[in-house]
Amino acid sequence: MKTINSLKMTFPALSRNEAVIRSCVAAFAAQVDPTIEEISDIRSAVSEAVTNSIVHGYKDGAGEIAVTLKLTEDNCLYIKISDKGCGIEDVEKAMEPLFTTAPEGERAGLGFAVMEAFTDDLKVRSAVGKGTSVTMKKKISSRYE
């Protein structure tokens, strides 16, 4: 499908950027008039992926988070969030609801479940020692057609 707009951004992995990044993505999505519900879902899903990079990926130190956004002709928003952090050993296991490696940090193990429930497609690629990237697709309803 033809890409009609795109945006690439990088941010230092600071927790204050969780709000900044989800607001940037929401601003990009606004060009296709999503519903309030759709914007809310996008903001939550983005926040989960970004928080994971900060809390898990870069648990041992500083790093950078890359965000790539793509809007296609058929009103789909593709959101890719990647880090060069520690990576995930077993992605399938990590994606199981309630699975967490950081219970002491008050993590509930629900981040991937939220990303899955609030978007239309979720792909996770990860390599130990290299990093993790999460790509989500959200179909935006065309209200004016």
Partner: peptide, 13 residues
């Protein structure tokens, strides 16, 4: 006005 799974962690904690 916004919440993600960190809110669940806060409640359960």
């Amino acid at each position: 006005s916004f919440m993600d799974s960190s809110g669940i962690g806060l409640i359960l904690g």
